[in-house]
Design a protein around this nucleic acid. Structure first.
Lengths: 239, 239
DNA sequence: AAGTGGTCTAGACCACCAA
DNA sequence: TGGTGGTCTAGACCACTTA
């Protein structure tokens, strides 16, 4: 899988990983002490330590002082999910991508929004509702709010030519994002836009993006059931 | 947040992280060279290197030889998702948990299943369909297939008392899991079990679990729309 | 071609925890 | 209380890349 030479600590890491995968060192098993591995691979302890630390960070090994280093029982609880960039996903599927603004409005946040955004009363927000099309067919309905207190520049930006997601990604630094994924039945207005019957099942993705000042933006995206499958994986392989 | 003393490389790591979060070192910015940081923190290069390596592994920094170390533009593409353990989720929500088997059958895999499982023709599979209840109400419908070529013991296990998910987790080591998440409209038979109307929106979670021998099990789980919201997050904070 | 990160060493002392 | 991992040092040489 990997090209070129592996460094020594990588060789050690992959060797340990291979033994775990092959069940030579099953979950719960204590692997050799660092000083034993140091002799086995004829290297310094720092190098062995680096290999093991990497596997510990990946949740594959666990260290206990005085006891040794152990193989962890894998759990399903955490996996890495890939959140798609809609435009890229459509283009990579070989479809044409088009984007249109359905609605854009600057307004003052409601009291409810202010408490959700944890910002002062009277904070202004830019609301943008847009549609992503694949091969001329509606693919995703997007309702976004941009916090003008954090991103004042958004007010002077032309979102008719640049989708807000792209503009925000390149212009506004953020440090945290929270996603919520659920299923729902489409309301009449959104169903009409998708040209399907009211109540059709859809996937709903909500995302809030933060930086040190506060919430930058939050967005609701809706996809018809057959159009989007999210994938998440957990693997002992591949760092 | 963290108790006890931080080691030097942790102090350095958190200091760098803080500066990035505070936008003192914005995305794209080159942070000081390792040799400069070594002077700043009055420590050896290995220690600085360890702090930076950790941030590189977290996707926050990027190293370029001869050029330096740079702050990465965050992307939404990867997040960590928490895949719920149904029983625990129900209990933690303060509901009573109950579990019932609707159907159990040992059979030979279809040709289609064999190609999906990448196993020999005639491989046997144990099929278990079950229902998880919260406060007496159907919460999740689960259809599971267990590969008896990989887990022969499953045949002699009583799944009427132990849910297969629990038994498998503690008895069968695995190394990889793949999840697919989508929305769908319930078919009549499943809708009847949930006592909702046919076509109601539901969240569908599919998981395949592997080890070095092959696919251990795969499971389809269905949740009513309002019953499950999956959460995923990406954050510069917290290692 | 120069300077960055990448790696590695052969020690050392310490903190913790199980025996 | 002994042995484990946790951390750190003060060097060294190498590989890569970009200026």
């Amino acid at each position: 899988m990997q090209q070129g030479k592996l460094s020594l600590h990588e060789i050690i890491r992959e060797d340990i990983r291979k033994r775990i995968q092959a069940n030579e060192w099953p979950p719960g098993c204590r692997i050799p002490f660092e000083h034993e591995l140091m002799v086995r691979y004829d290297c310094s302890r720092m190098t062995v330590n680096k290999a093991i630390t990497s596997l510990v960070n990946q949740g594959i090994l666990e260290r206990r002082r005085k006891a040794g280093t152990f193989v962890v029982y894998p759990s399903t609880h955490r996996a890495i999910i890939v959140i798609p960039d809609i435009r890229r996903a459509i283009l990579e599927a070989g479809f044409t991508y088009a984007y249109s603004i359905l609605y854009q409005n600057k307004r003052v946040m409601s009291a409810e929004e202010c408490s959700s955004y944890k910002c002062a009363d009277g904070t202004k927000v830019l609301e943008v509702i847009s549609l992503h099309n694949a091969n001329g067919r509606p693919y995703a309905y997007e309702a976004r709010r941009i916090n003008l207190a954090v991103v004042p520049d958004a007010e002077r930006t032309d979102f008719f030519t640049t989708p807000p997601s792209i503009w925000l990604l390149t212009h506004v630094p953020w440090t945290n994002a929270e996603h919520e994924i659920k299923s729902l039945s489409l309301t009449e207005d959104i169903a009409n836009i998708f040209r399907v019957s009211t109540g059709s099942a859809a996937l709903h993705l909500h995302r809030r993006t933060f930086n040190d000042i506060g919430i930058v933006t939050d967005v609701d995206q809706y996809f018809l059931s057959d159009d989007l499958t999210l994938k998440a994986s957990f693997s002992i392989s591949e760092p």
